[in-house]
Design a protein around this nucleic acid. Sequence first.
RNA 1: GCCGCCUUAGCUCAGUCGGCAGAGCGUCUCACUCGUAAUGAGAAGGUCUAGGGUUCGAUUCCCUAAGGCGGCUCCA
Length: 700
Amino acid sequence: MQVEGRFGPDLQNKESFVSSAVSPPDVQPALQPSLTVAAGTTPRAALEAAGVDLNGPSGAVVVRDSAGVLRDLDVPLDAADEVRPVAIDSPEGLAVLRHSTAHVMAQAVQELFPETQLGIGPPVENGFYYDFLPQRPFTPEDLGVIEKKMTEIIKAAQRFSRRAVSDDDARIELKDEKFKLELIGLKGNANASGNHTPTELDAEEASQVGGGQLTMYDNLNRDGSLAWTDLCRGPHLPTTRRIPAFKLMRTAAAYWRGDQANEQLQRIYGTAWPSKEALKNYLSQLEEAAKRDHRKLGAELDLFSFPDELGSGLAVFHPKGGVLRKEMEDYSRRRHEESGYEFVNTPHISKQTLFETSGHLPYYADAMFPPMEFEGSNYYLKAMNCPMHNLIFRARGRSYRELPLRLFEFGSVYRYEKSGVVHGLTRVRGMTQDDSHIYCAKEQMGGELKNLLDFVIDLLRDYGLDDFYLELSTRDDSPKFIGDPAEWEEATEALREAAVQSGLKLVPDPGGAAYYGPKISVQARDAIGRTWQMSTIQVDFQQPKRFGLEYTGADGERHQPVMIHRALFGSVERFIGVLTEHYAGAFPAWLSPVQVIAIPVTDEQTDYLFEIANKLKAKRIRVEVDSSSDRMQKKIRTAQQSKVPFMLIAGAQDQDNGAVSFRYRDGEQRNGVPVEQAVEEIAAFVARRANHSPSVADFG
RNA sequence: GCCGCCUUAGCUCAGUCGGCAGAGCGUCUCACUCGUAAUGAGAAGGUCUAGGGUUCGAUUCCCUAAGGCGGCUCCA
């Protein structure tokens, strides 16, 4: 169970991608037949007797016993049992492969850098890492040297040999490994005091020591001599020879046990695969992902940049990025208008007292830009819009007849993100949220949340994202969560109901709520399977209280409204980043900064194309005529690289016929289309907001 | 914020073991007028991220800062 946990949803909240591209989610490996292992014999013997493959790219590397525990092939079972082989290319087999490769890497590191202390070395999505405390940090050149040493170890076909040890013996054996000693101590604590101690091991640490009997894994040379040893729960590959393909990827720093207060270790990440080909595929998928990087495409397509003069995490949008942004916003505004939202505007700065009222200060002061002192008051750049929307609600008495009151704003906020976390458009210091706050009566909350979730999903689909799952973030018993538990319960249930009703997969996220209320977040998978957190919907009982928000009910009494926060894009910047990567820069025609490029075969057709361009412009199509002195082929290449959906090409023949020729983004062409028809086709395609690239098949 | 690496023309990158810097693409000019992914020739373009230090001399070595990249931590 713990093994599954390590590769399950807990990894999905990171924006680590490629995973699902490599191994599609929810694919179950074919169930292996079970085999009987006699008491005192090894699983290997049973597998060999049954003719199970133990060497190929799908060969078995460990077995799963009847209790669900993974076991080494060469460790005899105490009692007879039914086991199933676990193939190296199954999710669990891959984890074993990667964990064993991590051991080989640690062995190589300690051989090359004998003073190096060991941290932990678990498998992770697509690979593994091992944390070290070396004499000096690793350099990129070190990786090559370590890889070479690893190859030697793999060629030596060292056996992974399991050996049980007592805690005391382990302490003696590992007296020079302070981090391992700490893990042994933690394991002891966890056993003594049961669950949920503050020092509880996480899944990755548990893979080192396990919960009960400690075990060591000895790497034995073919002559039986000891090459290396590590404290480890196992299981492992039979021998290092069973590692078909690996590569060290990068070095990084990581805090011991993930805590900023602890010592910082040097981490090396690697990847390992059941075949050279699988490794190659993985690496080319990484390349594909790199090609889609919105930071790179943003520069290439002239969409946006991050001038140093502005400071880290502050983007400027160029004209082409501006068009994209405007189209996105325009459509969003229209949909909000149709769905009963009212548009408001609020300033970017405010006196300190507002954020005191809202409760954001002092909790979030260090995530806000420092205040400016002015006329005896401290002014803050706003990091959130909600307090200002609350003031709008409170500006006059409110009636139940006005509820739900839905206030919407493209609100710019500024957050003082730490320097190390700023990343392209997805993590910035200045952003515009498509922010909305909905005030409703408690009785309306359930229905409002359902409608809201439908609206959100529907709108995301219109932008071409169509693969979603939801995350329900709830409170745990941490003291950071404030408010009445009954209210939490009610809001959580309302969110859960809305989520269930949506029919989407729901992943629980206990403890992940905001301090003031539970939330649903919508995760979207992009074109190459990476998941991104998009929209969030949050229930808040706190701010209405703090701001004293109330409305007069049908009963003539004053009531406190429920407040729902929601942002759909998250931020406009981030959404543009995600869409850029989703479409690899080849945006849907309706969002494309330039929708049509007209290319004359010779200069003779330039004026003719300008006339056609005018007809398109009359239909609000964004069109450019390439009247440069380049040759036609070059213009086509340039247009292709700019990823415009439509190229219109005209030569003398087209001009004589009052026609024009199409070249679509996929390189397909359609010649001799009458001008009026061509204009209509383009305008119609853009108007219907199709998200796929236009091609011949669309216009038959 | 922490650790490591990086910063040379608009972009991608060479290069100088310390002696006034180079390519391709892009830009501009001229010629070519061509039917679906690069016509040819020429020109312009750099205080080598910034500040300080060492040195006869620093883009190169050292220090500091800024920005970027990869992680960690964080993400209301």
